[in-house]
Design a protein around this nucleic acid. Structure first.
Lengths: 143, 143
DNA sequence: ACTCATAGTTAGACAGCCTAACAATAGGCT
DNA sequence: AGCCTATTGTTAGGCTGTCTAACTATGAGT
């Protein structure tokens, strides 16, 4: 059984490595980078701290700061001070940011949907069924 | 149905984005980068051309050349000329490269297996069942 | 009030990818 | 044979996104 798990791990690692390039390919066109879309998606529900963004994205705080600076320069987010902690910075999406995010998501989803459309119904189902498990797996490595 | 596909695309994009960071986390320790391990895995069965490595990895030829140069400097691969085509360069893994690759794969698979071990048997099965579909999806975007 | 911890920024470096331009070889066509 | 176009790979130069280290400012406990 442990042997099966190692085997599964190996195969899963292999397709994941390739999937990274799939993401790049999907995100290639458009003005926003993968990371920018990711950040905007995170804060679309409510403002988040720079450190929270970093933690969720799996990057260090300085890298997160840099991303936020670029998004702010582009007018897509704004910094607001956390009233309960003067050290913290809350990053909030702007109306423009929300608009651009919607466009970017739409375009990227269409690209991905087109790729998914080349799969058989059974294959699509297999992907759909695996999503919760993959999400759990991602969370497991977030420690 | 097209609506379902967009929905699936959105959810799949979401977990894939996070999976990118999972791969980084898995590969963090050790001397070899993700790309280096990937390249070594590719050529472990038989030598490959620089262009074939690039195509499979989803990167451009100059980037592939660069990777090969680094691997060669580290003594992990060697360039040999293709006897049937003097333009081509075959990249072959060395004994040292094979040894390092084995160690890296072992460590990474163990990390991934540990994460997979936190899933239920059903979830593990769902992941396993999705792998062929995901592989096909990756290939679909390779055009 | 002092001290240590936490939040974020700045500075400097590095890996990995890209495009453009180039050299060498292959292969087809006249 | 000779030429022309396509293919293979390298080199040069630039950009993005990440990192660590060092710093500032604020919070929190003693």
């Amino acid at each position: 059984m442990s042997e099966n798990l190692e085997e599964l791990a190996s195969r899963y690692r292999d397709i994941l490595r390739q999937a990274v390039y799939l993401v790049r390919s999907i995100d290639a066109e458009g003005e926003l980078s993968t990371g920018q879309v990711s950040t905007l998606n995170m804060i679309s529900a409510q403002p988040m701290r720079v450190s929270a963004i970093a933690r969720y994205a799996g990057i260090r705080v300085p890298s997160s700061t840099e991303q936020v600076i670029k998004l702010e320069a582009a007018g897509l987010v704004e910094r607001i001070t956390d009233e309960s902690d003067a050290r913290a910075v809350l990053v909030r999406i702007t109306a423009t940011g929300r608009k651009k995010l919607g466009e970017a998501n739409k375009r990227r989803n269409a690209n991905m949907a087109a790729a998914l459309g080349t799969l058989s119904a059974g294959e699509q189902l297999a992907v759909a069924n695996a999503i919760p498990a993959i999400a759990k797996l991602n969370a497991a490595l977030k420690s």
